[in-house]
Design a protein around this nucleic acid. Structure first.
Lengths: 222, 222
DNA sequence: CGGTATTGTTTGGGATACCAATTCGGGATA
DNA sequence: TATCCCGAATTGGTATCCCAAACAATACCG
């Protein structure tokens, strides 16, 4: 793989895992030493990450994109029509094997699993459901939305019951798809998105003080 | 403006206007002489355009993204839930002035207007409607979808009556938003997207021979 | 002492040099 | 004449160089 793609992936991972704080400045020269590569591939990686809106220009400088909690509402509003459409299409198009694969993914995430695992599966579930729709534009749009959500979800304080509920909702969505009940699946998906949004907003509001304390550039929460 | 952005915009325009044929190879050295800049800003522009999927890697080489007419179905499927959502939200959120601005845009495109004008307004209408939703994710997604549609729309043979019909449909959508009738607006928007898709597919099927003759890499039409 | 001008350092933008890999052509050979 | 092989040319990937602008510190003047 080209050096640029390696750097891109590593930097992407560092940003999404909050190794690099939102709003943090990135100098090309620091990245140069950090990744032991020259500025050429680093700049290519930055331009690419800019396209994914994980990195942004601030004047002439590069910064890690801040987390804008004000986006959370709009993000849910965006996801609802897309994901309801996705599950409806999934009912019509998904094969038994496709569904079984996703069931397996959910099963693999037991209650003892590490936090990273829950986080990853919680994101991937939605993308994989989207994939069942067979529509690449829906897949990409939902993937992008989940990426933007990803860092905010790290900030969330996960309680056991709320996590359990989210998992129950995932299973219910998948169950309705399996039972070929598109309208129920769509209703369930919409409810799940709203529930998740509310859980997230509630948690972040309660913990707002803690967020700033951690020094992240977190904006937009009214 | 930085040289990279200039090159990006020019190259983008050349691709979208079919000045550069779909599938055509782009060598960095040719672009270097064409734009009288060095490879550094050219590479940045290419990486950026790759993110917009207007340019693609073919092995180690750069090519203009081919037009995949097989995407047209999926694109309509993607647009319908988004644009119906957009018009519903627009009913709730758009101001008189917002709507008047779009009416003006439609009015400005008289029957004597050049082909480029019709093409541009036909795209912008949908993006501007999306903007009325107030949801930036919807705006961006529809913008991207219209960009992908753009080149296929150039290939379409526009007859006067079909163009007239499209314009009538635009006006009807806007009318229902103005009248604050979200469900009618949504129904009209969905119908319009389907009509447009069908018109486009019919035209391209009839003219398929002509397309290949023009030497474009046009794929995916069954 | 405070404000301003200046200079030195750091940064990103762009140009260029170099390299490895791939491509293409031509000539030797069967 | 067809084929194979080798080398020259071209390509994209990477490293480095230079420059202008931004910023900071400092020194100088009022």
């Amino acid at each position: 793989m080209s050096q640029m793609l390696q750097i891109h992936d590593q930097l992407r991972e560092m940003i999404l895992s909050l190794d690099l704080g939102p709003g943090e400045r990135l100098t090309e020269r620091w990245l140069e030493s950090r990744f032991e590569g020259s500025r050429t591939p680093i700049r290519a990686a930055l331009v690419r990450l800019e396209g994914e809106e994980l990195v942004r220009r601030d004047g002439r400088n590069w910064i890690v994109a801040p987390i804008d909690l004000g986006e959370l509402e709009a993000l849910a509003e965006f996801r609802i029509p897309l994901e309801t459409t996705a599950v409806r299409l999934a009912c019509a198009r998904a094969s038994e094997a496709d569904i079984a694969g996703i069931e397996e993914m959910l099963d693999a995430c037991q209650s003892g699993a590490p936090r990273e695992e829950w986080h990853r599966v919680g994101t991937d579930f939605h993308v994989e459901i989207a994939r069942l729709s067979g529509n690449p534009f829906i897949v990409k749009a939902i993937g992008g939305a989940m990426t933007r959500l990803s860092r905010a979800r790290w900030l969330e304080v996960w309680t056991e019951p709320s996590r359990e509920q989210a998992w129950r909702e995932h299973r219910r969505i998948l169950g309705f798809i399996k039972a070929n009940d598109p309208e129920a699946a769509a209703r369930e998906a919409a409810d799940h998105i709203k529930d998740t949004r509310d859980r997230l907003l509630r948690s972040l509001n309660e913990d707002r003080r803690g967020l700033r304390a951690r020094g992240f550039a977190v904006i937009g929460l009214r």
